[in-house]
Structures are given as structure tokens and as C-alpha cells.
């Protein structure tokens, strides 16, 4: 069995989701509240992975992070290893690839809350940080759940970016989708069936539970 690939995939998806929540939340907040004219340029950049072929994204990342790329050469000069064909490299690629799936729902949730609850909190003596954590975050909870689930699931299912920037190193970069591709290439239909079928069930369960959870939150008055 391909337990190693499954474990690696889950680890990658979890790490990516965690990083995405950390950087996606302030980004979503800024996109929801800023009045800068160039806001939508950033918004479009964030949404770009939705339409860009993953291989294109992977190709540019490979160039950028490779020893001759701007980021790669800088890392080498700092005495760090370059990222392509490593697990951290996969995380970087996945974060960029899944960015819109996390940022968009959270941004929409922040917009949907509106200014009013935050104004109310301000008149009730809550400082800006207090308002963010005590009012904005909990009210945007449905957006965070949707964003996390989509970000996680989308990372589990990615293929093009992984192949370009990670390659196919067992235990380091060989994730599920690549493993399936491998099995098919070598005509190992049974193994391919097991993994593909598992993915199908997993995806259905994820999407179904998300809808279910959203319904329950709506009933709770969100």
C-alpha cells in the first residue's frame, strides 16, 4: 500500500491550511476593508491560481525558487537549501496554489459582517484588536470553516504544481495524486483503483460535511 504517500499528502494539506490561515486572514481582512484603489489588483493576483494552469504556476515557481532564480539564489547566499524537490518547496507551491480557496470565503465572510457589529463593539469599549478577535473572527466562523475545508481538500487534490516543483521523491514529495499517476503509468490498476476510489469517497465526505455544517451554523443564527 501507499501509506507513505497518504501520510505525506495529509501532512502537506494540514501544513498548507495552517500557513494559509495565518497569512490568508490578514489578507482577507485587508481586502474586505481597504479603500485603496489598487486593492482589486491584489485581489486579482490572489484569485489568479483559479484560472492559471497549475503547470504554469509550477513552472514559474521552479524558476523563481531554483538556484538561478531570484529567491533561490538569495537563499543560497544565506546558506539555506533551495526549495525545489523538497517538502517545504511543496508547501510554498501549495500555499500559492490554494490561496484563493481560503482567502475568498474569509473575505466574503468579513464583508458580510459589515461595519455595524464592529462599531457596536467600539461603543462598548472594545479596542480594535479586541473587536477583531472578539467579534469579527467568531462572526466570520462559517467563512473560516469553508476556507479551511476548501484549502485542505484542494491541496490534497493538487497534481500539476506538485509534479513541477516537487517531482516524485518517495517520502519527500511523492503525494497521492502523483502516486496514482505512477501506478497508472506502470499499469498497476489495482493500486490505482484503491487510491482513486479512496480520493473519491474522501472528496464526497468533505463536501457533504461542509454543506451540513453550514446549514447547522445558519440555524444557530449566523
Amino acid at each position: 500500500m501507499d501509506w507513505q504517500a497518504i501520510w505525506l499528502t495529509l501532512k502537506l494539506a494540514a501544513t498548507t491550511t495552517f500557513v494559509l490561515l495565518l497569512i490568508g486572514t490578514p489578507l482577507a481582512w485587508w481586502l474586505a476593508h481597504s479603500r485603496a484603489w489598487w486593492k482589486e489588483i491584489i485581489g486579482a493576483l490572489v484569485a489568479l491560481p483559479l484560472v492559471l494552469p497549475p503547470t504554469v504556476l509550477g513552472f514559474y515557481l521552479l524558476l523563481l525558487l531554483g538556484p538561478d532564480g531570484a529567491v533561490g539564489s538569495l537563499m543560497q547566499r544565506l546558506g539555506l537549501d533551495t526549495l525545489p524537490f523538497t517538502f517545504p518547496g511543496l508547501v510554498v507551491g501549495s500555499v500559492i496554489y490554494s490561496l484563493p480557496f481560503v482567502v475568498q470565503p474569509i473575505r466574503n465572510a468579513f464583508v458580510a459582517i459589515g461595519e455595524r457589529p464592529l462599531e457596536v463593539a467600539a461603543t462598548l469599549r472594545a479596542s480594535p484588536l479586541d473587536r477583531f478577535f472578539g467579534v469579527a473572527l467568531p462572526l466570520a466562523l462559517p467563512g473560516f470553516i469553508t476556507g479551511s475545508v476548501l484549502g485542505f481538500a484542494h491541496t490534497v487534490g493538487e497534481f500539476g504544481v506538485v509534479l513541477m516543483i516537487g517531482g516524485n521523491i518517495p517520502g519527500e514529495t511523492k503525494v497521492l495524486s502523483v502516486a496514482i499517476y505512477d501506478h497508472v503509468e506502470s499499469l498497476e490498476w489495482t493500486q490505482a483503483h484503491w487510491l482513486a476510489g479512496g480520493m473519491l469517497v474522501f472528496s464526497f465526505v468533505v463536501v457533504f460535511s461542509m454543506y451540513h455544517l453550514e446549514k447547522r451554523l445558519q440555524r444557530k443564527g449566523y
Binding site: R116, P117, E119, V120, A121, A122, T123, L124, R125, A126, S127, P128, D130, R131, V135, P138, L139, L141, G221, Y222
Partner: peptide, 20 residues
């Protein structure tokens, strides 16, 4: 002086209770 440091209370047109 920012709103949260003013000793005021504000009642809005809609109750605007925190739903969470």
C-alpha cells in the same frame, strides 16, 4: 479620542446584537 475610549453608550436603529 477613539470611540472605545469615550464614556458613551450608543443605541443604533437596529438592535445589532452580537449573533454569536
Amino acid at each position: 479620542i477613539p470611540t472605545h475610549q469615550r464614556p458613551i453608550a450608543y443605541v443604533f436603529q437596529e438592535a445589532s446584537l452580537f449573533s454569536h
